[in-house]
Design a protein around this nucleic acid. Structure first.
Length: 139
DNA sequence: AGGATGACAGTGT
DNA sequence: AACACTGCCATCC
């Protein structure tokens, strides 16, 4: 019996787990701002984590976009959002950089070499499970 | 309409 | 540590 149609093997590039439809865009900015408002005083959150807390995984850039076009006022703790490298995402030496850094330092956040220790000041806290596993390593 | 840009991030070299 | 590259996607030319 013939194999019927060689079929040339689809070999479709294995779609890399595309993200599902997610939410309807209207509420997106509010979801992000709500997440930012949850960052505790004296803590910082990375753009990526803000996105995740907001329920928008992998949309770190979107967080930056929303913050940029959001009126800074109104007690929104925008300054508690920094990048994954533990650094402020404004050019060093810019007014924006200075403003953000001062606000954070005023809350007790310490910069070392222009960076914040995310293990200490990062929110949400790092997964304890991993930490425990690290502690349990055999000697 | 299509390319460049950006308050980003993960991975690889 | 410093790039390069890729994914991501709203905005802005």
């Amino acid at each position: 019996m013939k194999k019927k149609k060689t079929k040339t093997k689809p070999k479709k590039k294995a779609a890399p787990a595309r993200k599902p439809p997610v939410v309807s865009n209207e509420s997106v900015p509010e979801m992000i701002l709500a997440a930012v408002r949850r960052i505790p005083r004296g803590k910082v959150c990375t753009y990526g984590n803000v996105a995740e807390v907001a329920g928008l995984p992998r949309r770190a850039r979107l967080v930056g976009t929303v913050l940029r076009q959001t009126p800074s006022a109104r007690g929104l703790p925008w300054f508690r959002v920094i990048n994954a490298g533990g650094r402020i995402s404004f050019p060093t030496g810019s007014d924006a950089y200075a403003r953000q850094r001062h606000k954070l330092e005023a809350e007790g956040v310490v910069f070392v070499g222009g960076r914040v220790d995310l293990r200490r000041y990062g929110w949400p806290a790092r997964d304890q499970q991993l930490d425990e596993l690290l502690w349990k390593l055999p000697e």
